[in-house]
């Protein structure tokens, strides 16, 4: 029944920023996502809140910027988390991934979206998703260590 809106706001915003590459647009879309979530009486308490939020956010991002995700990740963002050298090495490897794989890494390992929600978002089986994530993780780990 409960959703930590404060935490999810940051995560949805990060997801929108990753898709739109613009702070203002990401913030607008994040707020619109939550407004639609608040206005809904159909899905918000059916135990599929995260799936619903990410679906709204994704659709709004697509509406906002109808373009494929081909841009590399931005380089100059200040971050308190992790070593900047590691992040740079990792960023170059992430840029080699397909846009969908990159988004998957963001959702699973940065935004910590549960596996069952991701399976429904991507319409794949848990096993297929697990294999895909393990392959991606192995690739990123090799890059970070090598």
């Amino acid at each position: 029944m409960t959703l930590d809106i404060d935490r999810e706001y940051d995560r949805i915003y990060r997801y929108c920023y990753y898709r739109l590459r613009s702070r203002e647009e990401a913030e607008d879309v994040t707020q619109e996502t939550f407004l639609r979530y608040f206005a809904s009486d159909t899905y918000q308490d059916t135990g599929r809140t995260l799936q619903y939020l990410y679906t709204i956010a994704r659709n709004l991002c697509i509406d906002e910027r109808r373009r494929p995700l081909t841009q590399p990740l931005p380089e100059d963002l200040p971050s308190e988390e992790g070593d900047p050298l590691d992040a740079a090495a990792l960023r170059s490897e992430l840029n080699r991934l397909s846009p969908e794989d990159r988004e998957l890494v963001l959702l699973r390992y940065v935004n910590e979206v549960p596996m069952n929600v991701l399976c429904k978002l991507y319409g794949v089986s848990r096993f297929a998703l697990y294999r895909r994530l393990q392959d991606l993780l192995k690739r990123l780990r090799q890059r970070l260590e090598g």
């Binding site: 706001y9 990060r14 971050s79 988390e81 992790g82 070593d83 590691d86 990792l90 992430l94 780990r141």
Partner: peptide, 18 residues
């Protein structure tokens, strides 16, 4: 280490109107 590096790679500027 990987988790922190991923968080840094996907860092976003702090939202203003949150």
């Amino acid at each position: 280490k990987l988790k922190n590096a991923l968080s840094a790679a996907f860092a976003a500027p702090p939202p203003k109107g949150k």
